[in-house]
């Protein structure tokens, strides 16, 4: 079989081939074969229903309950939803809060903004690593070993790593000592830590690994002969990236971005430790209300956060439908 027809058959470049009769037959046959779907999905579905759907439904129910001194009390109250969205003075042109969204919406907004910036940075930093592992490293065992090397920091509890940030980036930390020692600065710089800069760096450092894995898997499946062939036909590296590598890695990029998106949107620990608690995130708000046993309002905040995540994921899936790509 020649290379060109192989290219067409798997639809690597451009549009999918016209479905011919044989392909349709194959598809029909295909649906009949393989393990029975019902057996494949039943165990996980039962697990999901018992341990995710049922508790989730109870969270939704809590969000309508009232918080009385005696504890949660069943009711159908929209009080906490009102609290979430409405600020006094919103419709009053005279008030200083005129048309200012509630603090919870603003917090969610700033959380999402931070998330987007970090996602972009993770993509820029992580993609070349995935590319390196998939395209430049030949043996699978080395690919896996070098990938695992990126995972190792993850296997140290984040609570321990969080404590280690200060002696690294603080005023008397290693970086400052190095800068002072080399005579680059004459007194310790403080923007490294408890700052937006430090916070963003920390988020990228912690979560970038999550984007590398999926992108790597997408890239690893690209037949290197195709790239070879394209190069032989005179394609520039940019063309090859735009026509072959880029589109092929999109599902991996989408999955990686979903991972990072949900992790950082729900994040609270890094904001506390690396940003010194100098900002609120959607996650810290939930924890604060959870901490004072206002469970209905914590639930409302959680549901709104989930709603934002669902919208974010749908947007990502709109751009790349990972299921259609199967």
């Amino acid at each position: 079989m020649s290379k060109v027809s192989e290219l067409h058959h798997t639809g690597l470049i451009g549009s999918q081939p016209e479905p011919d009769e044989a392909a349709v037959q194959a598809k029909i046959r295909h649906t009949e074969e393989g393990f029975a779907t019902v057996w494949l999905i039943t165990p996980a579905t039962i697990w999901l229903v018992l341990f995710l759907v049922v508790p989730l439904v109870s969270i939704v129910i809590f969000s309508f309950w009232e918080n009385t001194p005696q504890g949660l009390s069943p009711a159908f109250s929209l009080e906490f939803y009102g609290e979430y969205f409405y600020t006094k003075g919103f419709f009053d042109p005279e008030a200083d809060r005129f048309l200012l969204p509630s603090v919870f919406i603003r917090t969610l907004g700033s959380t999402l903004y931070f998330t987007l910036v970090t996602m972009l940075l993770c993509l820029i930093v992580g993609y070349p690593i995935a590319y390196f592992l998939a395209m430049q490293v030949q043996a699978f065992k080395w690919q896996l070993a070098l990938f695992l090397l990126c995972m190792v920091p993850f296997w140290t509890s984040y609570l321990i790593r969080a404590v280690a940030w200060l002696p690294m980036l603080g005023r008397r930390g290693l970086i400052n000592q190095a800068l002072l020692g080399m005579g680059i600065v004459d007194k310790p710089v403080s923007f490294l830590f408890y700052s937006e800069f430090g916070y963003t760096m920390a988020l990228v450092q912690i979560y970038v690994v999550l984007s590398i894995g999926p992108i790597f898997f997408s890239l690893a499946k690209i037949d290197k002969d195709i790239i070879e062939a394209a190069t032989d036909m005179g394609a520039t590296p940019f063309q090859i990236f735009r026509e072959i590598i880029g589109p092929m890695s999109l599902p991996g990029v989408a999955i990686g971005m979903i991972f990072i998106f949900v992790m950082i949107t729900g994040e609270f620990a890094t904001a506390v430790v690396v940003y010194g608690g100098k900002t609120s995130t959607a996650g810290t708000v939930i924890l604060n209300y959870y901490g004072i046993a206002n469970y209905p309002f914590a639930a409302v905040n959680a549901l709104m956060l989930m709603l934002a995540m669902v919208i974010g994921i749908i947007v990502i899936l709109r751009i790349v439908d990972i299921r259609k790509e199967l």
Partner: peptide, 13 residues
């Protein structure tokens, strides 16, 4: 959805 449910509330539920 398992990705999206905030952990403390899943634990509470």
């Amino acid at each position: 959805t398992g990705l999206m449910v905030p952990g403390v509330l899943l634990s509470l539920g």
